[in-house]
């Protein structure tokens, strides 16, 4: 009983404490860069699409709201032919970003993407792709992985020797 009364008293005291509410949108809150909201596809430092259409984000997505189709250019570079996120299903959990091996898919602090029409919540690649590198400025997957693409032949990735001449028997 006493504890109930004490609670009443404590709560009553809060009449004189300041409200914690931030009056969005009059006052914009500070959201750190790692805040999880709208998803974007970024580009590598060379300005090329980072996404290699590996499908790991789609596999990681707990609500299965990512779908994409792989294609590749003449030089063997993989990229998504189309990339679709159904934001009306997205729970901004960020697992896609964690799954992404190329830092392509990133969550941004921009959370203001409500729509009156639910159909407009479906974002295609053109809507997702931004022109910058996002949070990770230097990473370039193809400079590290051994697959040859335009402008980077075999042996030019990180820690790679020049290709072996298989006709040579020299050690």
């Amino acid at each position: 009983m006493l504890s109930q009364l004490r609670t009443l008293w404590t709560v009553l005291q809060h009449t004189f404490t300041k409200a914690d509410t931030v009056e969005y949108p009059d006052v914009m809150p500070y959201l750190p860069p790692r805040y999880r909201a709208r998803i974007v596809l970024t580009r590598d430092p060379d300005g090329e699409e980072r996404c290699v259409a590996c499908n790991l984000c789609a596999a990681a997505c707990p609500v299965d709201c990512i779908a994409l189709q792989k294609t590749e250019d003449d030089e063997g570079r993989w990229y998504p032919e189309w990339f679709r996120i159904n934001f009306s299903r997205c729970v901004v959990c960020g697992l896609c970003e964690e799954a992404c091996p190329t830092h392509a898919i990133q969550l941004t602090p921009d959370f203001e993407y409500c729509e009156y029409n639910r159909q407009n919540m479906v974002y295609e690649k053109e809507d997702l792709l931004i022109s910058g590198t996002g949070k990770y400025h230097d990473y370039n997957f193809y400079r590290i992985a051994g697959k040859a693409i335009s402008g980077k032949d075999k042996g030019q990735a990180r820690n790679e020797e020049q290709p072996i001449n298989i006709k040579s028997l020299l050690p």
Partner: peptide
């Protein structure tokens, strides 16, 4: 309720 819960 807002006032007592430190809201508006």
């Amino acid at each position: 309720l807002g006032i007592w819960q430190d809201r508006l």
